[in-house]
Simulated scan of single mutants.
Amino acid sequence: MSSTRLEHNIDATRYEIYLDDTLAGYADYAERVEGDRKIRDIQHTLTFPEFRGRGVAAQVVEFALNDSRAQGFSIIPTCWYVEKYIAANPEYADLVG
């Protein structure tokens, strides 16, 4: 049974997922502040080929959305996968803006 670890790599501006201590994928973002709004633009989600088909992208995107919400960020889903994930999980729709 493999272990899964999710991390927010602030220095690299991305959320990472590790399976058995090997980087399996990530979601990178850019941040900005507009007035009193904090905005996180999730620009790209990547799952390395050898880890595809295991739900890696969904796990890292869910982690990124939950962490962004906890930190008070609105989301811009530039990445098509993040946009699709939010559409399929409407509990995150309030983050988009």
Score class of each variant (00 low, 15 high):
M1T: 12
M1Y: 05
S2G: 07
S2T: 13
S2E: 14
S3N: 11
T4M: 02
E7K: 09
H8M: 03
H8S: 07
H8G: 00
N9F: 00
D11Q: 09
T13H: 13
T13D: 09
T13K: 12
R14P: 04
Y15W: 00
E16C: 02
E16K: 06
E16G: 05
I17C: 07
I17E: 09
L19W: 14
D20E: 03
L23D: 07
A27Q: 06
D28T: 04
A30D: 06
E31R: 08
V33C: 00
G35L: 14
K38N: 01
R40D: 05
D41A: 14
D41I: 13
I42M: 09
H44N: 09
H44I: 05
T45R: 08
L46G: 00
F48T: 04
F48M: 11
F48E: 13
E50T: 09
E50I: 06
E50F: 08
F51C: 03
F51V: 04
R52M: 12
G53Q: 14
G53D: 15
G53S: 12
R54H: 14
G55M: 07
V56C: 08
V56Q: 06
A57R: 12
A57L: 13
Q59C: 06
Q59R: 13
V61M: 09
V61K: 04
F63L: 02
F63V: 00
A64V: 10
N66V: 01
D67V: 10
S68F: 03
S68C: 10
A70T: 15
Q71G: 11
G72K: 15
F73V: 07
S74W: 11
I75M: 10
I76P: 00
I76G: 03
P77W: 09
T78S: 14
T78I: 06
T78Y: 04
T78R: 02
Y81N: 03
Y81G: 04
V82D: 13
V82I: 12
V82S: 12
E83M: 11
K84Y: 15
Y85S: 14
N89T: 14
E91G: 13
A93N: 14
A93T: 14
D94N: 15
L95K: 09
L95M: 15
L95S: 11
V96H: 10
V96N: 03
